[in-house]
Amino acid sequence: MACGEGAKPLDPGLLFASGAVVRPVATGSRARFTELFRAVEVHRARPVIERVFPFAEVPDAFRSVQSGGGLGKVVIGHR
């Protein structure tokens, strides 16, 4: 198995024994991420924030997302 720089190898036996569910996530290449990051920086793009919930209101935040009525991102704060 290939590892990222500084990453420790993954022990498949420990992973299996833990009962974890592993799902692949296609995220694109590092080069594409770098291009995206530069574009966001150059154009000063900012996400649309629908609402910020305090951590104590996590269930309300999930209900908000499940309702599907929002336009922007739902953020859960930690302070």
Rank of each mutant, 00 (worst) to 15 (best):
residue 7 A to F: 09
residue 19 G to C: 05
residue 33 F to V: 08
residue 65 V to P: 05
residue 6 G to T: 07
residue 2 A to S: 04
residue 12 P to R: 03
residue 55 F to T: 08
residue 4 G to E: 04
residue 65 V to H: 01
residue 40 V to G: 03
residue 43 H to T: 15
residue 28 G to E: 15
residue 27 T to A: 06
residue 38 R to Y: 02
residue 70 G to L: 01
residue 57 E to H: 10
residue 34 T to G: 13
residue 60 D to H: 10
residue 56 A to M: 06
residue 19 G to S: 09
residue 77 G to R: 10
residue 62 F to V: 15
residue 42 V to Q: 15
residue 52 V to E: 15
residue 42 V to C: 06
residue 38 R to G: 13
residue 10 L to N: 07
residue 8 K to Q: 14
residue 18 S to G: 02
residue 34 T to I: 08
residue 71 L to R: 15
residue 74 V to I: 09
residue 32 R to D: 08
residue 66 Q to C: 05
residue 27 T to D: 04
residue 74 V to F: 00
residue 43 H to Y: 03
residue 41 E to Q: 15
residue 17 A to L: 14
residue 14 L to A: 09
residue 49 I to Y: 01
residue 16 F to A: 06
residue 79 R to A: 13
residue 18 S to A: 10
residue 55 F to K: 11
residue 14 L to K: 12
residue 45 A to V: 05
residue 74 V to D: 00
residue 79 R to N: 15
residue 75 V to R: 00
residue 49 I to E: 00
residue 36 L to Y: 14
residue 56 A to W: 03
residue 13 G to A: 10
residue 62 F to L: 12
residue 49 I to D: 00
residue 12 P to N: 01
residue 18 S to H: 04
residue 45 A to Y: 12
residue 15 L to G: 03
residue 36 L to A: 14
residue 49 I to P: 00
residue 15 L to T: 12
residue 30 R to V: 14
residue 40 V to N: 03
residue 68 G to S: 13
residue 13 G to V: 04
residue 60 D to G: 04
residue 75 V to I: 12
residue 45 A to F: 09
residue 36 L to S: 11
residue 22 V to K: 05
residue 56 A to L: 03
residue 25 V to R: 10
residue 9 P to A: 09
residue 34 T to P: 00
residue 22 V to Q: 06
residue 28 G to H: 07
residue 31 A to G: 03
residue 14 L to I: 06
residue 30 R to E: 05
residue 33 F to K: 08
residue 46 R to V: 09
residue 7 A to W: 05
residue 12 P to S: 14
residue 63 R to D: 04
residue 22 V to E: 09
residue 37 F to V: 15
residue 48 V to H: 13
residue 53 F to M: 02
residue 69 G to L: 13
residue 76 I to M: 02
residue 41 E to F: 07
residue 71 L to P: 02
residue 7 A to S: 07
residue 46 R to Y: 02
residue 33 F to E: 13
residue 5 E to Y: 09
residue 34 T to Q: 13
residue 77 G to Q: 12
residue 53 F to T: 02
residue 69 G to V: 01
residue 69 G to H: 11
residue 2 A to M: 13
residue 1 M to E: 07
residue 27 T to R: 13
residue 20 A to S: 06
residue 76 I to A: 00
residue 43 H to L: 11
residue 42 V to K: 14
residue 33 F to P: 01
residue 37 F to M: 10
residue 23 R to E: 15
residue 76 I to H: 02
residue 72 G to R: 01
residue 53 F to G: 12
residue 53 F to S: 02
residue 24 P to T: 12
residue 59 P to E: 03
residue 35 E to K: 03
residue 62 F to Y: 06
residue 45 A to H: 06
residue 52 V to K: 13
residue 28 G to K: 15
residue 70 G to C: 04
residue 5 E to F: 12
residue 6 G to K: 15
residue 16 F to I: 11
residue 50 E to C: 04
residue 75 V to P: 00
residue 12 P to K: 01
residue 25 V to F: 09
residue 71 L to S: 13
residue 23 R to H: 08
residue 35 E to Y: 11
residue 25 V to E: 09
residue 75 V to A: 00
residue 75 V to M: 10
residue 43 H to S: 11
residue 6 G to C: 04
residue 24 P to H: 12
residue 38 R to I: 02
residue 79 R to W: 14
residue 28 G to S: 08
residue 78 H to W: 12
